[in-house]
Amino acid sequence: MDSLIPFTTSGSLVDCVDRKMLVVLRDGRKLHGVLRSYDQFANLVLEDTVERIYAGNTFAEKWCGLFLIRGENVVLLGEIDLDQEDDVPLRQVDYKQLDDYYRQDAAAKKQREEAKAKILYEQKGFCKEGGEGDGY
């Protein structure tokens, strides 16, 4: 049966179906969920999805349910090792509690990147970069 599926990038996703996966989106969202289906554009169907945010050495989860992700926004799709998942040295906290910290972190990072881009453009002779998701 395996030989019928051509060895292409999307063909190799067959093994990942019905497994717990991590999806990183272009806007930086990290989604954990069970991959139920995909197609040639890497459109994904994730079931029992949670969105995770990280700040410092803590993380928090928000329940999101069934997701249909448009392929062009996917940066990374990775399988989660269920055995090692519990050994992650991070502390889980309440989502509401971490949300403010996370937003502050994100804002600070954005500011830093803007300052860096400005220096690169004005003093170092680099060209300007575009908007969101341009890094990919």
């Binding site: 989106l25 272009r26 806007d27 139920r36 079931e47 999101c64 349910g65 069934l66 997701f67 249909l68 992700i69 448009r70 062009e72 926004n73």
Partner: peptide, 15 residues
Amino acid sequence: RGSTIKYLRVPDALL
């Protein structure tokens, strides 16, 4: 327009 969509959240019962 489809190209502007990032993701869709659909009801769990749909599957």
